[in-house]
Computed example of a mutant assay.
Amino acid sequence: MDVLMELFKYFYVDELFCLFNDVIHQFPLLLKKGNLQLHVRHIDAYFRKHILPNIEINNVISIRIKNMYHMAPVNLGQFNQVHLLILQNVTALNWPSDFPTNLKSLAIYARSKDREAVFKQALSLDNIERLEFNSPFLHFHDCHDILTKPSTIKHLMFNSQRCFIDYQFLLNNMPHLETLRSTNTYYPHRFNTNLGTFTCLRTIDLICKHVDIDAMISFLTNIASNSLRRCRLINISSSLSTHIAIVLIS
């Protein structure tokens, strides 16, 4: 039995039902054991009807929803032990009404046209420490908006085919930011030089295009002068040429 319980850790819960429900006698009882960690990758009609009633909700530690438009009407807030939530095909219209209370890491794949609205909604969540934000095009324009309450996010990652970072918006709304990472960051040296200073930002890791390395290093070290410990810039200027600047600050 211990071997089975160890094996279960490597499958999503819907896979477990498909593989073992008709093979192991009273299989759902095994899924209610207190020390079994479960991973969910679909919250659809089948999950709601056949799986959810047969599992211990507090055993679920991660949820992945591949298409928010196909999500069944299930309250995510009931999954109190979920620490990782991945949402794909997210728009302002299908944003969940409830989230797990103890959620720490959130990964979002947002439609480009809804990127700003979805990003602001993600920042408004309580207790989130890590946010990975994915969208084909990330351009937040010049935004001086101040949200209702500061974000709790400490680690922020942007993944996009083309990303423009608004440092002023981050300064206004993410006082606890410790790590900033981004891929395909365009024109990161076009910035307002009259910005404030991050007080907790320790690590910056940007893959850039069309960047003036010297100007960018100067800018980044200034906006995080009191806290920055590691800064890595990779400048992709062409398909054949890549320049890497790594700044370690003691």
Rank of each mutant, 00 (worst) to 15 (best):
I146D: 00
M68E: 11
G196R: 10
Y187P: 02
T179P: 02
S182F: 08
S160H: 02
N134G: 00
V118M: 07
Q168H: 07
L180Y: 13
R115V: 13
F133Q: 01
T179A: 04
Q161Y: 05
T152A: 10
T185F: 02
T199I: 12
I153L: 02
I153E: 03
R115E: 15
M68R: 11
F79M: 08
L123P: 07
T199Y: 06
I153C: 02
H70L: 13
L84R: 14
R162K: 05
N127H: 14
S151T: 03
S135N: 01
W95G: 05
K104P: 00
L170W: 05
H70R: 14
E178H: 09
N192Q: 14
H144Y: 05
W95P: 07
P96A: 03
H139S: 11
K113G: 06
T91H: 07
C143G: 00
P73N: 15
K154G: 11
L103Y: 08
F140R: 05
S182R: 01
F99E: 08
N94G: 08
K120P: 03
K66E: 12
D142T: 11
T185L: 11
Q168V: 07
Y187D: 14
A122G: 09
N75I: 06
A72H: 12
Q121M: 12
F137I: 11
A92D: 12
N173V: 03
W95N: 07
L180V: 14
N172V: 01
Y69E: 12
R111P: 00
K66R: 14
L106F: 08
I153H: 04
D142W: 02
L84K: 15
F119D: 03
L93H: 12
N173E: 01
H139V: 02
H155I: 10
N67Q: 10
N173L: 01
L93C: 06
L103K: 11
L138P: 00
N94Q: 08
C143Y: 01
P175S: 03
